[in-house]
Simulated scan of single mutants.
Amino acid sequence: MKIAVVCANGRAGRLIVKEALSRGLDVTAIVRGENITEAPNSLKKDIFDLTGADLRGFDVVVDAFGVWTPEKLPQHSSSLKHLCDLLSHSNTRLLVVGGAGSLYTNKEHTACVADSPDFPTAFKPLAAAMAKALQELRARSDVKWTYISPAGDFQAEGEKSGKYIRGGEELTLNSKGESVISYADYAIAVVDEAIKGHNIGRRISVVRE
């Protein structure tokens, strides 16, 4: 299996590359600068400069794009649209490293994590930008996409337990009542989805077991 990780130099991207290599996948890191991942193959290119030819031949493309400054938040939508346009009507699957703020907190799907009063105000613009990108992605029937939301507490330096629970559109808690996952365990879930491909056209979520 050939997999490309876009924006692979980020914290999530590097761990996804590492996990994919440990499973024997043929991994290409797509990066803007020097490749600091473990991938032996790399392409130095900005996400917005990628072409259809750059992504041709991959079974899976993982979108690990992320920006946080207010002026760049709209790029969550524009970058995802760009990748979708490049992969439109192809057999290449697109896995999106998503956010937790848009996970639903009720069965009616009328309230989200970001709506709760204890959700940090500083993160609301980011959550809104990522939720908008997800809604736009849902409208794409021409792309084999899967959106993967982490747990509410997404720990960059968390330990790798090797175990996780896969949920769906709603915030899922583990047996301890926690919504937490490490980047390392999240990477396992992403690579599992890359290999199995059971959730095309769906948003799934993951939490530490």
Rank of each mutant, 00 (worst) to 15 (best):
M1W: 07
K2Q: 05
I3D: 09
A4R: 05
A4I: 03
V5K: 05
V6K: 00
R14E: 08
L15M: 06
A20R: 01
R23K: 12
G24S: 13
L25Y: 12
L25N: 15
D26F: 06
V27M: 06
V27C: 11
T28H: 10
I30S: 08
G33S: 08
I36Y: 02
T37P: 02
A39N: 08
A39D: 08
S42A: 07
K44E: 02
F48S: 15
D49K: 04
L50R: 13
T51Q: 13
G52L: 02
G52M: 06
A53V: 08
A53N: 12
L55T: 15
R56E: 14
G57K: 10
G57H: 11
G57M: 08
F58P: 15
F58A: 12
V61A: 00
V62R: 02
F65Y: 06
G66K: 05
V67Y: 00
V67F: 00
V67G: 03
K72N: 15
L73P: 10
L73M: 06
Q75F: 05
Q75A: 08
S79F: 00
L80R: 08
K81F: 04
L83H: 04
L83Y: 01
C84Q: 07
D85Y: 06
L86H: 11
L86I: 10
L86G: 08
L87C: 11
T92V: 08
R93A: 09
L94Q: 01
L94S: 02
V96L: 05
G98D: 03
Y104C: 11
T105N: 09
T105E: 12
N106P: 01
K107Y: 07
E108T: 14
E108M: 11
T110S: 14
A111F: 01
C112I: 04
V113H: 04
A114G: 14
A114S: 15
D115L: 01
D115G: 02
D115E: 01
D115N: 05
S116V: 07
S116C: 07
P117C: 05
A122Q: 11
F123H: 09
L126V: 15
A128C: 12
A128L: 12
L134N: 09
Q135S: 14
E136L: 04
R138K: 15
R140D: 10
S141G: 15
V143D: 06
W145G: 06
W145Q: 11
T146F: 00
Y147E: 01
Y147C: 03
I148V: 11
A151G: 06
A156K: 13
E157F: 00
E159D: 12
E159V: 07
S161E: 04
K163E: 13
K163H: 12
R166A: 11
R166S: 12
R166C: 14
L173F: 10
L173A: 06
N174C: 11
S175A: 11
K176C: 13
G177N: 05
G177L: 05
E178N: 07
S179D: 12
I181P: 14
I181R: 13
Y183M: 02
A184K: 04
D185G: 09
A187D: 14
A187K: 09
V191D: 04
D192M: 04
K196N: 12
K196A: 10
K196T: 14
N199Q: 12
N199C: 08
I200C: 14
G201R: 10
S205Y: 00
S205M: 01
V206A: 01
V207W: 02
V207S: 03
R208S: 14
